[in-house]
Write a protein that binds this DNA or RNA. Structure first.
Lengths: 203, 203
DNA sequence: TGTACATCAGTGAACGCGCGTTCACTGATGTAC
DNA sequence: TGTACATCAGTGAACGCGCGTTCACTGATGTAC
């Protein structure tokens, strides 16, 4: 943090922090390289010592986000064991917690114009995150009689959609869109859904 | 449409159409007044004869969107009667249809930085749209025994969240995020949810 | 039907600004001996 | 420990560009008589 003087010492990370804050505030299209540089106390040209340009900053934020996200979901899944149900619900809570704690990353990941296939590293990180979600769903799916079991990828897509919807509609500006907290909303929504699958007793 | 010459004839609508296309392509922060003017074949200054400026264009797109959206949902609800369940499912399909058919409007409504309280007209249109959703939910809610009935506003928030999530994650770039169509995904997701509430027989 | 005039809906030039990116540069740091 | 030099990580000026907005203007349309 200190290291006052000509050399910053940790400019790469400082730029990423600035970028994340700006992405959170203005969205990925409103984000500017120059403003991030200014926020980090440095000339715009200095950014090019650490990143390939504006787009690369956003892509790197997304990649970092997917890595953290996958780690977090994996951890929640692991520590939620041995019950598949408990593990699944833990990943749901982890999803929302991540979105709230790292809004800049979340936005770069899901609301940016950056293609997930921009770099192999980004694609790999995104695939890993998705795989964790699907694993948790597949795992829980085994407790449903095969004939009434939906494909695990559909199951996980449903949960993902509801989670994302709650984040976007109710967790962003906490403004009074709903009288319920996002956490309550997501937990109750997932609960009803799981009951619909016969994974929770009907009350 | 014709009316070649100095006066455009229907510039206000032409500008809105151009703006909607651009918002769809670049998002509300990437959208520029100048480009919309150019697309409509007119000087940027001409825009000010019809709108108060850049923000006003976006806000007006959102307002128009909420009006259309509310009308559409109301119509789906009405024609889905007399069964509350059929009416409810019709509104779900209408939601997705609207998002697909009017992406510019949808984005202006739900992904823009414009506050819904920017003008009374915008706030009113948004409130009306929300009210239709909640009415459909409340209506269907009556078929659930009171002691296991969630608040209608929570019910509708769940459905809204899942719908929005499906739109954002799976209906935008139809790119292979999922092997299922958004329509199938949403319909099956809502089906499972309603089963969880005991509104559909458990198969 | 014709003319004078008001109103309307555009133009085009100008403004100040911030953008992303490049370039030659220079000050600070690290290394070889 | 001291010195010469290479490398690194910044600067600052410049570029061309497109932005939103304003202003005086002008061509087209509508209206009164």
């Amino acid at each position: 943090m200190p290291k006052r003087g000509y050399h910053h010492g940790n400019l790469r990370q400082a730029l990423m922090d600035a970028a994340l804050t700006l992405i959170e505030e203005k969205g990925p299209t409103g984000f500017t390289l120059s403003e991030a540089a200014k926020k980090a106390g440095v000339t715009p040209a200095a950014v090019y010592r650490h990143y390939d340009g504006r787009e690369d900053l956003i892509a790197e934020a997304a990649r970092q986000g997917f890595e953290m996200f996958a780690d977090l979901m994996q951890y929640a899944y692991d520590t939620g064991q041995p019950s598949a149900l408990a593990a699944f619900e833990a990943t749901g809570r982890a999803y929302l917690a991540f979105a709230r704690k790292h809004p800049g990353h979340y936005i770069a990941m899901f609301e940016s114009s950056i293609s997930v296939n921009r770099t192999p590293e980004l694609a790999a990180a995104a695939a890993r995150a998705k795989a964790v979600l699907e694993m948790a769903a597949a795992d829980l799916s085994k407790h449903i009689p095969p004939e009434k079991r939906p494909p695990a990828s559909m199951f996980s897509a449903h949960i993902w959609a509801m989670s994302h919807g709650v984040v976007e509609l109710f967790a962003r500006n906490n403004g009074g869109a709903s009288p319920f907290s996002p956490e309550d909303l997501l937990e109750s929504g997932i609960g009803i859904y799981l009951r619909g699958l016969g994974l929770i007793a009907p009350d």
